[in-house]
């Protein structure tokens, strides 16, 4: 099987670029904003979503011919909920601090529209290998946007950049004390919810300028 022909590449790269799940399909924004206060939370959340999305796409694609159309939503939800539970348990076992910080938002991957949306729009119509690539691509597209948003929110909101490790996070960079002494101040608004909305709005705008896509009204 040719896994890396041009069609497969397109399935992976489109969602990162011209068909991004967050900025163009407008799916999965709920969780995208809550976990972007720190970069490490965003990275872990992206990994969780990539895992759930690619596995749910593969599983649903394998059983797609056996799912009666009327009950498909319930079946999709139960597959997704089981996968999210796996992620939840793994996080609890190996990254306890992180799972505590993410609190209800790991559970809310179940209702993340990306997972349901891709299952409905792609996995139920294509074979497992394509569905897997679609899941990876959309997960990466989601991850890219939330990591960008969290980068700005953390750098300008709290003055640090934190990467994930087993414990409370590894601080890669923080704004030196001398800057604060010279009068630099963090923008507290970015840590609060309005900051998340505004940064994401600007990121979406920027990306649409790059790709050149317009929307009516």
């Amino acid at each position: 099987m040719e896994l890396f022909n041009s069609e497969s590449k397109k399935i992976i790269s489109d969602p990162i670029n011209v068909n991004n799940p967050i900025s163009l399909q407008v799916l999965g924004i709920c969780s995208a904003l809550a976990v972007t206060i720190r970069v490490d939370q965003a990275i872990i959340m992206s990994l969780a979503v990539i895992f759930v999305l690619s596995s749910s796409n593969v599983i649903l694609s394998v059983i797609r011919n056996f799912i009666p159309n009327r009950v498909r939503i319930v079946i999709m939800l139960s597959v997704i909920a089981s996968l999210v539970s796996v992620v939840d348990q793994l996080l609890q076992a190996y990254m306890y601090d992180m799972s505590k910080q993410l609190s209800v938002f790991v559970g809310l991957i179940i209702t993340n529209c990306i997972v349901m949306g891709r299952a409905e729009a792609f996995a139920l119509k294509h074979g497992p290998s394509k569905a897997f690539l679609d899941g990876i691509g959309n997960g990466l597209g989601y991850g890219m946007i939330i990591i960008i948003v969290s980068f700005f929110r953390e750098l300008f909101g709290s003055g640090t950049i934190t990467l994930p490790n087993g414990g409370a996070g590894y601080v890669l960079f923080s704004i030196p004390e001398s800057w604060y002494a010279a009068g630099y101040e963090n923008i507290g608004l970015l840590v609060l919810s309005p900051g998340a909305f505004i940064i994401l709005g600007l990121v979406i705008w920027f990306q649409r300028e790059l790709i050149g896509i317009e929307e009516e009204a």
Binding site: S193, F197, L200, I204
Partner: peptide
């Protein structure tokens, strides 16, 4: 906003996000 002149690529979701940010600020 239908009657305002928004930059074409800011229209739609991006503008809605900015508006939600302002609403959220007001609710704060």
């Amino acid at each position: 906003l239908r009657y305002s002149n928004i930059p074409p690529r800011l229209r739609g979701v991006a503008m809605a996000m900015l508006l939600t940010g302002l609403l959220s600020m007001a609710f704060m």
